[in-house]
Design a protein around this nucleic acid. Structure first.
Lengths: 345, 345
DNA sequence: CTGAAAGCGCTTACAG
DNA sequence: CTGAAAGCGCTTACAG
């Protein structure tokens, strides 16, 4: 306890009067060690405050029991919840989570991936399928498992081969659900507030699903009616400002996520626009605030915590069986609340 | 590229026609390697997709360039933002963040700490000063740097010695600012909605500061007027329900954080209580939503992103100079908005 | 049930 | 400017 350096397995072995092999076995495979030898080792460990050195262990074992995850940002409840689901699930199986954010800077991602690969991660989890080719190549060359989340269809394609399993939602269906709901209410003039779609397959697909469903009902969504804004309440506000300058103005707005939708709602309230009487708003995510606010937000519920849990389970399964897990598409659902209603006549 | 296992430094050395020592130097200290040797090595690395093995490197170097952080939960914007600040700052100096949450289960913390210590972390960051003695002992025995955040005063005391530097806020001052503001408005009957105070020094100190300031003005805050609730909108709602059963009912409520304050506001709105005419509410954190909602929330602004940045800088400084950094107390400020006003007469 | 020894993939004095 | 060799702290066949 009073030596200058951290206790090593040899210190424990010396104190317990056994070899380091036996200490190692007592730790990783206790059953094969005689009970009272085990007890002496346990006492020595406690006396020394011994904690095994992870890098040595990882080097000997060839795996570090860590998973690296890269998300756009933690500063959005939706990613924070998914990360929480990942972390909790991994942790309960002895894996630790290394987390990084690239703040929607795709160029940064490759460096973040490299940093993770240099830290003994056994798997990497990324958001979406839009990633630089070098990112995929580096991960493949490193022989590290790769899982993509938040998106679906089946295996992500990259060139000719299946690059990685994906666990996520049908993002086109999100736009479809929103469009159907608004069409049924009788709306005919629409606006969309989306995050930036470049390098963001989820955002793109949500808008595509929305647009396509309108098209199937004979309604064209002009480019000008789709505005891209940075995520955040301010983005939602700015988005509505732009949409309200259109002539004729839309009677219904689909927002790519709840933060944009809330911003849109705040802007409407600030302008004295009656929601949903004069304007309907549909969001996506179902953040906790969505059901609390007045009027409560009509939105598409995405089970993001579950998403993290499922992604973690897939990774754990992969590590355990050395077999690529199945892709998964989690169910989503439209939740109709107070911000949507028939258009004013 | 088509071998079954990941490229090692010896593969790079062979391909470049040099020794592993030279490859290693080219990577960590390029200046001492002849330019065209360096170029051959660079090409070999690219051709093989070589990424150094972090566990081997960490073992040889004695440090893993990772920092472990444990927060109560990521599912609260306030922790997510601090983690984001930590991560961004560490990452830009070549350190990676290992993150865990204990979900307010103090018994879980020791195991989480152990899991982190077993992964070659060079430092550990914890929230608050309330931790099990074994947690402190284990970290000390592991010779890993420890930093506490979110709390202040000076060095955290544990037994007789300074256990760790702390970087945070004066949590008593938070309660004091709220009390002063409400007293000046003319309130005399108060309620408090707090998170659970056991094992949460921040929550305790906020309430203490509030109570003490009232006492200095001759007002006693009865135990029954302080309700503890789980964090979350529902907790805030439940808290106000309880406070409203008091006779006489409080005219002003101080909430331990903005999530509780928002829940309190939603409950008031649901009951037709006019805020701030019939009830004043003061929160803490200044979440982005606080200024957007109607009425906007009077709250104490805590610079939590900065907190993460400062904590990361302190850790980096510690790693670089091998000297314990100074403790820091970050400035906070009361932001008066729409949920506070004079009591009804 | 236990120990001696080799090996995991790096780094770094040391010698040239 | 470069290479041979030892060492970081573990694990695990192998032998007993």
């Amino acid at each position: 306890m009073s030596t200058l350096s951290r206790a090593r397995i040899s210190d424990v072995a010396a104190l317990a009067g056994v070899s380091t092999s036996t200490v190692s076995r007592a730790l990783s495979n206790p059953d094969v060690v005689k009970p009272d030898t085990r007890a002496r080792i346990r006492d020595a460990i406690a006396a020394l405050g011994y904690v095994p050195d992870g890098s040595a262990r990882a080097l000997a074992l060839g795996r570090g029991r860590m998973v690296g995850a890269i998300v756009p940002t933690l500063d959005n409840a939706i990613f924070a919840r998914a990360v929480q689901g990942l972390q909790t699930t991994l942790s309960s199986s002895g894996y630790q989570l290394l987390i990084s954010a690239h703040e929607y800077n795709p160029a940064a991602e490759i460096e973040v991936v490299r940093a993770l690969l240099e830290r003994a991660v056994d798997a990497i989890v990324l958001v979406g399928i839009d990633h630089a080719p070098q990112t995929f190549e580096l991960i493949r060359a490193s022989r590290v498992a790769l899982l993509l989340m938040w998106t679906y269809p089946g295996q992500a394609q990259h060139g000719d081969e299946n690059v990685a399993p994906v666990i996520g939602f049908d993002n086109r269906e999100i736009g479809r659900l929103a469009a159907q709901h608004l069409l049924e209410l009788g709306h005919r003039r629409f606006g969309v507030i989306s995050g930036f779609m470049r390098q963001n397959d989820r955002a793109r697909q949500r808008v595509e699903g929305f647009r396509q469903t309108l098209a199937e009902h004979g309604i064209r969504l002009p480019e000008a009616n789709v505005v891209e804004q940075p995520f955040g309440y301010e983005g939602g506000r700015a988005g509505l400002k732009l949409l309200m300058q259109l002539r004729p103005a839309p009677t219904a707005v689909f927002c790519g996520n709840d933060v944009l939708a809330m911003g849109c709602l705040f802007e409407a309230q600030g302008r004295g626009i009656d929601v949903p009487r004069q304007l309907s708003i549909v969001g996506c995510d179902d953040l906790p605030i969505a059901s609390q606010i007045t009027p409560s937000l009509t939105t598409v519920l995405l089970p993001t915590y579950d998403l993290g849990v499922h992604a973690a389970r897939a990774v754990l399964h992969w590590m355990k069986n050395d077999a690529m897990p199945e892709s998964e598409c989690l169910p989503i659902e439209l939740v109709v609340r107070g911000t949507s209603g028939p258009p004013a006549v």
